[in-house]
Amino acid sequence: MSFKEKSIWGTLVAITGVSLLYFWTVLELAASGEKDLRALGGVGVGTAVIFIVAAIVYHGVIAGMNPKDARAGADERDRLITLKGDRVASVILGIGVAGTIVYVCMGNLYARVDGNDFTTVNLLLLAFAVSEIGKYVCQLWHYRRGV
């Protein structure tokens, strides 16, 4: 497996784990009635730090195992696979943003839909997390099955 593929696997596992941790904490906050954006900011920064540290350590380890492969830049196949992954991510993100807009509009139109900032921010973050996971899954699929 190439450095690129290992990198994508590691990032996929890290972003999935961090997203689960973040949204689990958010659900607990919401259940306790603490729908405060400042508390949310703390959770967001904490999970972002965990993700960055995990990504640095993982990439350091896999680069140390094969430094030549790690130094090699992306070639045309890597760039094509990156583009395909980005396309999938943009579609998922677009759907997520459109869904969030509908949610906000429903909040303004109908009192029963709770269109608050806490939920809006988390819906956008969920769309971003799912789009990133979709991007890496798509890239791995193309590395394994062909372009």
């Binding site: 492969d69 070639d75 045309e76 196949r77 890597d78 099955r145």
Partner: peptide
């Protein structure tokens, strides 16, 4: 050729059609 070994493997196994330049 200026590509990675993985790309050569993918071309050989018909999992990637290279650009004209490559």
């Amino acid at each position: 050729v200026g590509v990675t070994r993985q790309t050569i493997i993918a071309i050989e196994s018909d999992r990637y059609s290279p650009s004209l330049e490559v």
